[in-house]
Design a protein around this nucleic acid. Structure first.
Length: 520
DNA sequence: CGTTTTTGACCCGCGC
DNA sequence: GCGCGGGTCAAAAACG
């Protein structure tokens, strides 16, 4: 913290002689609170006037012990500050008067003993008065402290309830997944035990399949041991994949976003590095492969390819989960795609016949509608496609009517989708076991890129517009800014991301030079 | 000079 | 076993 408040406090003690007894009050004043005092401004640097990034020194009694609830803290802080400032204001004046009177009485004259007695009596009266006020102040501070504690407990209770409800819901989802996994396992065991009853040819086929499967597993495991070559499967060290979808499972799920864009790649706020390009069969446009470079070893990859039929449509397929905090610019898309992927995995894995369970997915994703996003049953990996090509090209006009989710059963405006995704994601944060650290400094793993800040309603609102803007406009910075400002009036969640949107955008835009991707 | 992109080679799964 | 296609690697080139 800065040096200003310490000097201020000394000044207070020297000048008043009152705060030296502040411990008697049973409430140690926060340096931060002192710092904000308008009576005793800090040094000229002014560093103490606002929140600083550095935490208060250990052991100090500060009032921001739950930094996540910044707004609540600010309210409490403001209240405490106000009370204490008023208190101090009074004390200072009193103290100065007392000292001045006392000093003058002993220094200036002292000739008349009657006068001395008189002044001593006055001082005693004054002291009595101060005692009483001291008691009153003590009571005030106790009252403030009690209020503060009560608020704190209320907040803790609310947070606890929120966590419990999320835990219950995710546990239920978990059970569904485990049941599915059990069913699959049993079916597989049955198939592998069956060769006893098969003829030779069938036995060979079965063993071939087994060896083939084992090969796959071995390859994956080998990749797992290579942090760079295959970060996709390296489990986060602090998050053992117990009772949750494995990293491999999560990576298998894919989310495709179809959006109209003249740019070679939609800007989603993340930083990507191209690591390959291939000509895919049946499409004259090459497919580009990118991996996330916002953090070393981030397993997220994406493929970008133009639609063969309509080359203005860009299909971006995301795969994997970010293992690092994301900038605000990247959160909208990341949360949407991750939530879709989670729904894909948790709602229902592809069953043996390759069909999804649309009912569950529809109910979970879109409780207000029976529609759903397109799910590919024939793809090697479960893939959900979010079609955002039906929307207005102007991001400022995206809010209503919004983009649509195409579905074999109809379509539904995507306006509500990110909100639903956000809520679902919030509820599933524990299910995934990939959570961002609360202080936001440590790059805790994130469920497909979206940390838990979605519980803030305002941010869920932001996602609505931001996601649409991202998908439609390659100039993401302007689109996001417009979308957010139009809804929140410029307010954004305090995020922990490192890089700025502009930076990301600048990097992404360098791909404009890649004319290969524009199609032949 | 460090980072990113390009691009041919390689690996692997799968179908025949 | 062979070829095809998808995906990735990694050296070279390009870029800032």
């Amino acid at each position: 913290m800065d040096k200003g408040w310490g000097l201020t406090l000394e000044n207070i003690s020297d000048r008043v002689g009152f705060f030296s007894n502040k411990s008697v009050l049973g409430y140690s004043l926060s340096p931060r609170v002192s710092n904000r005092s308008t009576m005793f401004p800090v040094d000229s640097s002014g560093r103490g006037e606002h929140h600083t990034a550095a935490p208060p020194p250990a052991g100090e009694h500060t009032v921001d012990f739950f930094s996540e609830k910044k707004r609540s803290i600010d309210e409490v802080n403001a209240f405490v500050k106000k009370e204490i400032n008023e208190t101090r204001d009074y004390d200072v004046n009193t103290g100065l008067q007392l000292l001045t009177a006392s000093d003058q009485s002993t220094v200036d004259d002292g000739v008349s003993s009657e006068d001395a007695e008189d002044r001593r009596a006055k001082i005693e009266v004054e002291l009595e008065r101060m005692k009483g006020e001291n008691q009153r102040l003590k009571g005030m501070l106790t009252h403030i402290s009690n209020n503060y504690t009560a608020l704190q407990m209320q907040l803790n209770t609310l947070m606890q309830q929120q966590q419990n409800s999320a835990l219950i819901e995710t546990t239920q989802l978990h059970k569904i997944i485990e049941r599915k996994a059990e069913e699959k396992k049993e079916a597989r065991q049955f198939l592998e035990l069956s060769p006893n009853q098969m003829n030779d040819e069938q036995s060979v086929t079965s063993s071939d399949e087994r060896s083939s499967r084992n090969k796959r597993v071995n390859r994956d495991e080998n990749h797992e041991s290579e942090p760079y070559k295959a970060p996709k499967l390296s489990p986060p060290p602090s998050n053992p994949p117990v009772d949750q979808p494995t990293e491999a499972t999560m990576r298998k799920a894919r989310v495709s976003v179809r959006a109209r864009s003249e740019a070679p790649m939609i800007s989603d706020g993340c930083q990507w590095r191209k690591y390959g390009q291939k000509m895919a069969k049946g499409n004259p446009c090459p497919r580009a492969y990118y991996r996330c470079t916002m953090a070393v070893g981030c397993p997220v990859r994406k493929q970008v390819q133009r639609c063969a039929e309509d080359k203005t449509i860009l299909t971006t397929t995301y795969e994997g989960n970010h293992n690092h905090p994301l900038p605000p610019a990247a959160m909208a898309m990341a949360s949407t795609t991750s939530a879709a992927a989670n729904m894909l995995l948790s709602g229902s894995m592809p069953s043996a016949d390759g069909l999804m369970n649309p009912g569950f997915l529809a109910r979970t994703m879109l409780p207000c509608s029976s529609n759903m996003a397109t799910i590919s049953a024939s793809a090697p990996f479960p893939t959900i496609t979010l079609d955002l090509t039906q929307q207005s090209p102007n991001p400022l006009q995206l809010q209503r009517p919004g983009p649509q989710f195409q579905s074999p059963f109809g379509s539904v405006t995507a306006q509500a989708i990110p909100q639903v995704f956000g809520q679902v994601l919030h509820n599933q944060s524990k299910f995934s076991g990939l959570q961002m650290s609360h202080d936001g400094n440590e790059p805790g793993p994130i469920l497909a890129g979206q940390p838990l800040q979605l519980h803030q309603p305002s941010y869920a609102d932001t996602l609505s517009a931001a996601t649409a803007a991202i998908a439609s406009d390659p100039n993401f910075t302007a689109a996001l800014a417009a979308a957010i400002s139009s809804i929140l009036g410029g307010a954004q969640p305090n995020n922990n991301g490192g890089s700025t949107t502009n930076n990301n955008n600048a990097k992404v835009n360098t791909i404009d030079d890649n004319s290969n991707l524009q199609g032949n």
